[in-house]
Computed example of a mutant assay.
Amino acid sequence: MSQTRADIAVIGGTGFYSFLEDPEEVRVETPYGDPSAPVAIGTVAGRRVAFLPRHGTSHEYAPHTIPYRANLWALRSLGVRQVLAPCAVGGLRPEVAPGDVVVPDQLVDRTYRRVPSYVEGGAVHLPFGDPYCDRLSAAVAGTADDVHRGGTMVIIEGPRFSTRAESRHYADQGWTLINMTGHPEAALAREMRQCYTPIALVTDMDAGAESGAGVGQAEVFARFKANLERLTGLLTDAIAALPDPDGCSCSTWADGLELTYSIPGEVPAPVFP
């Protein structure tokens, strides 16, 4: 396999660079502009893995300005078919607590300033009833006894945190986690016919879930940094256990459909009259 190809990608914070063996940076041009950063490709558990820092190498992209379409297209152009997405989340309900790792199975989109799709014309409607890959979720959840599987993650626009009333409203709906980056990342991965699952670290309880001043940025960053070694170990074990993506419904949903956007190496760019 070419050294600039990878089967698996991790989209996460810059602290994850260290888990790649002998990484090589690859700059990728996309029809949607530059991705958040050059893609680093190296080896993990004997497999070729691409890493892309979601917020850029110096955290220059706020959640609502991340070039999500460029990121997923760039990874697909390098051969990536499976995406693991570690992220920081707030907890909304008492069944989770700071320090927990959760693999959710549902999302609720509350964003409003982002381009959520590659579809810009024509009739292409993405099936998204189950937004995350069941195969990947099972592999991640099987890496450790303390990884929780299931729950709903609500994605808010950001960059501000929720008001206490908003947070309580989300909890009252039965939603488990709150995050700012999970959409449209998951939907775009599905449009690229990639398997995708988040790996959510609970860094805090959201403003409406506990008393006090509410969540702050320093608390979130400190909790995530303190758990980097644990998360990189989990990622390494998950990568070693990932199943063959062939035949997964994350890819086969588009079989027989005429897509109106390009998938690199698979579907050419459409030509409209």
Rank of each mutant, 00 (worst) to 15 (best):
A88M: 14
E120P: 00
Y118C: 05
P94M: 04
V108H: 04
P98W: 08
G122W: 12
D109A: 09
L84T: 02
V102F: 09
F128H: 10
D109M: 08
R114A: 04
R81Q: 12
V108D: 05
G122N: 12
V101C: 09
Y112K: 07
R76Q: 03
V119Y: 06
R93I: 09
P116L: 03
D109W: 07
E120R: 15
T111W: 06
R113Y: 12
P86S: 11
Y118H: 11
V83M: 07
L78P: 06
V101S: 09
P116C: 04
P98A: 09
V102T: 10
V108A: 14
Y112T: 08
L126Q: 04
L107C: 13
E120H: 14
V103Q: 01
R114Q: 03
Y118E: 05
F128E: 04
R113G: 05
V96F: 05
L92C: 12
A74R: 00
D105V: 02
F128V: 02
P104N: 06
A85C: 14
S77W: 05
Y112H: 15
P127A: 09
G79L: 11
A97P: 00
R110G: 01
C87A: 15
P98D: 07
P98G: 07
Q82F: 07
C87T: 15
P94T: 06
L84F: 07
P127I: 11
V89M: 03
D100V: 02
G91C: 07
F128K: 01
S117C: 02
V103H: 02
Q106E: 15
R76A: 15
D100G: 04
G99M: 09
G121P: 00
C87N: 15
S117R: 08
D100N: 11
R81T: 14
G122C: 12
P127S: 09
E120G: 15
V115P: 00
S77G: 12
G121Q: 14
Q82M: 14
R76F: 03
R114P: 02
A85M: 14
S117T: 15
Y112Q: 05
R93F: 02
G90C: 07
V103F: 05
P127Q: 09
D105H: 12
A74F: 06
Q106M: 13
P86E: 11
V108E: 12
L107N: 04
R113L: 15
G121N: 12
V83H: 02
L78Q: 03
G91N: 03
A123W: 13
A88N: 09
A97Y: 00
R93D: 02
V89W: 01
V101Q: 08
R81V: 00
A123D: 15
L126G: 03
G99T: 07
L126H: 05
A97L: 02
L92K: 06
R93A: 08
A123H: 13
V108F: 08
V83I: 15
A88P: 10
V119L: 05
V102W: 04
E95Y: 00
P98F: 09
Q82Y: 07
T111C: 11
G121D: 15
P98T: 08
D105N: 14
P98C: 10
V83A: 03
G91W: 06
T111P: 06
Y118S: 03
A123L: 15
C87E: 08
E120Q: 15
E95R: 14
V101E: 10
Q82C: 08
D100K: 00
